[in-house]
Simulated assay, not measured.
Amino acid sequence: MKKEVFLSKQGETVVEKYLYESGIYITMGMEREGLAELQKAVNLLEPIEAEIITRKYLSRESDYVRHQTIYKDLGISWGTYNKTRLRALTKLGTELGIISMVMEDRL
């Protein structure tokens, strides 16, 4: 079985901060360098990954939506949700060049 590689905790924090900030710009209808690239990168994700990222980081309600609400709404377990979210953050961070490929194994 192939072991997946995820972001370090620090890398996860960097990507989350970028997504939260981008979500504010999107919500306010403002331009920000990189928003078009972000949308393209989100479109490359698996549907469930894109749903999680959009609901948690890029929607108008993202500051108020808890992880628990999202995984229950999607009908998945916490473990599946967290693994899927981390996989999506890793893909976005790599695709957007936010993080280097210095990552640690997390499984």
Rank of each mutant, 00 (worst) to 15 (best):
K2C: 13
K2G: 13
E4V: 15
L7E: 00
S8D: 01
S8K: 03
Q10A: 15
V14T: 12
V15T: 04
V15R: 05
K17L: 12
Y18K: 12
L19W: 03
S22P: 10
G23S: 10
G23L: 05
I24Q: 11
Y25K: 14
I26M: 13
T27E: 09
M28D: 11
R32W: 09
E33R: 12
L38H: 01
Q39L: 06
V42Q: 01
V42M: 02
N43S: 12
N43M: 04
L44N: 15
E46I: 03
E46V: 04
I48E: 05
A50N: 01
E51I: 03
I53P: 01
R55E: 04
Y57M: 01
L58A: 02
E61D: 09
Y64V: 06
Y64N: 14
T69L: 14
T69A: 15
I70G: 07
S77P: 05
S77G: 08
S77M: 02
T80C: 05
K83D: 03
T84W: 05
R85C: 11
R85H: 10
R85A: 12
R87N: 08
R87F: 08
A88P: 02
A88F: 05
A88H: 03
L89V: 01
L89K: 00
T90A: 07
L92M: 02
E95W: 10
I98P: 08
S100C: 06
M101W: 13
V102A: 09
M103F: 10
R106P: 08
